[in-house]
Design a protein around this nucleic acid. Structure first.
Lengths: 187, 187
DNA sequence: CCTCCTATGTCAGTTACTGACATCAACCGT
DNA sequence: ACGGTTGATGTCAGTAACTGACATAGGAGG
């Protein structure tokens, strides 16, 4: 018999989601989450760098998918097309990992809490930086790589927001296509 | 004679900048800043919602300038051009308020501290939302307004980053023009 | 001269973290 | 089988970011 119940991390993850939904992010302490998961607060902070990270603990990071897709993109594609292809791949991955309702519930929590919005924005900025670096790897010059990365991530954010809003029946990848078309129409 | 020295807020502002430069953001406590400004920690938190806000306490908010410029934009302009015009106006305002060296020093502090990056991203997101709302006011439809706002803010961020980097002798507004040209060339 | 207003001080309390050290099942080599 | 090592956890004390409640006293206004 194991010394402790297995999958402490998983228990904390679900406990956190439950508690955030019940009492809100600010209304639940790290100790609350730990208690419901049957561990101590100290253990919580061993698994998550801070309280916010519980909501951002993704095994299959979107960044990686974006980077891989950019690295594998067609030589003929423009930088913007490469990034859009990347975020589309990430969208496919994300939609496989979660149902829209799961994503929407998480989104509701994040949108209700500035501290969580900040963290989400930081993750998006990391994705932008990763895309930019991947473009540089493909030989895209500096001001262009930055702008293309921003554009691609903007497409992703717009698409995601529209997807979870329920304003459409489209899947997330199709929302990406839609947002990409909007971006192209801008100029 | 006044009961206290006047301009406590201003003293805290400069004390914070000094201390962050001397000991780093994480190395200075709110109490340190208050002490150097000759007030108590409690007073610090009465003036600033949290420790991060000391670095983001701008009297003339960039958002306002962007919004005003969009409201005043030429009827013929495309949504993207409206936002770019807005961030250009903000760039002019910012360059009037601070020297490049001041902006660069502040940038160094922010870039060295994830917590401050998050806050900066939140401010940029607020600017995006403000621009989007201003576009909506001008009758721009939803997916387009969001993408145009993202694009314009991306231009601003790229321009600002290039300006403070010292890689060019251009002024901030000219960096905006440059970044805008890069964005237009993307498609 | 009295009164309210406002900026500040004081103090106690909560919560997010962090470091140091202890514990003990499980695993690994002999 | 036995002993040493490892790794995930517990325990505990401490720091720092805030927050609420209440006290204080100059200054403005009647």
């Amino acid at each position: 018999m194991a010394r402790w119940e297995p999958d402490a991390r998983g228990r904390m993850l679900t406990a956190a989601l439950e508690l955030f939904a019940e009492k809100g992010y600010d209304g639940t302490t790290a100790g609350d989450i730990a208690a419901r998961a049957g561990v101590t607060e100290r253990t919580f902070f061993r698994h998550f760098a801070d309280k916010r990270e519980v909501l951002f603990a993704n095994p299959n990071s979107l960044d990686e998918m974006v980077v891989k897709a950019i690295a594998a993109a067609d030589e003929q594609a423009t930088p913007l097309e490469m990034v859009i292809g990347g975020v589309r791949a990430a969208a496919v991955g994300l939609a496989e990992a979660r149902t829209r309702e799961q994503a929407a519930q998480r989104s509701r929590i994040v949108e209700a809490t500035p501290a969580l919005q900040e963290r989400e924005l930081l993750k998006m900025a990391a994705m932008t930086a990763a895309a930019q670096a991947a473009l540089a790897e493909r030989g895209v010059g500096e001001p262009t790589a930055a702008m293309a990365a921003y554009g691609g991530v903007a497409v992703f954010q717009t698409a995601f927001s529209r997807w979870v809003s329920g304003a459409t029946d489209l899947g997330l990848p199709e929302c990406v296509d839609e947002a990409a078309a909007t971006l192209r129409a801008l100029t």
